[in-house]
Computed example of a mutant assay.
Amino acid sequence: MDAIKATEIAHALYRAHGGKAEAEAAQRERQSRDDGNEREAENWRAIRGSIRQMRGANQS
């Protein structure tokens, strides 16, 4: 999956789930890995990274 597609999916997931979008992507990544679909898990990892970038750095 290219970076543009991952970003598009990340935006859609963030609009749908708000602050829980990253957790949703992580859950889908784990499920894909458990199902033996490593390529899909990698896609979800990229989407999760895009969500993390959208949210910005953690505040302390």
Rank of each mutant, 00 (worst) to 15 (best):
M1D: 01
M1K: 02
D2M: 06
A3H: 05
K5R: 02
A6P: 03
A6N: 07
I9N: 00
I9V: 14
A10Y: 10
H11R: 12
L13V: 14
L13F: 02
Y14K: 06
R15G: 06
R15V: 13
R15C: 02
A16L: 01
A16H: 00
A16Q: 01
H17I: 06
G18N: 07
G19D: 15
G19H: 05
G19Q: 10
G19T: 12
A21S: 11
A23E: 11
A26P: 00
A26I: 12
Q27G: 02
Q27V: 15
Q27N: 07
E29Y: 04
E29K: 03
R33V: 04
R33N: 07
D34Q: 05
D35R: 02
D35K: 00
G36M: 11
G36P: 00
N37C: 05
N37S: 05
E38H: 04
R39V: 13
R39E: 09
R39Y: 03
E40A: 11
N43V: 09
W44E: 10
R45V: 10
R45Q: 05
A46V: 07
A46K: 02
I47W: 00
I47K: 00
G49P: 05
I51V: 11
R52L: 07
Q53T: 15
Q53I: 14
Q53N: 11
M54G: 09
M54T: 07
G56H: 00
G56T: 00
A57L: 06
A57E: 14
N58E: 11
Q59C: 08
S60N: 12
S60Y: 15
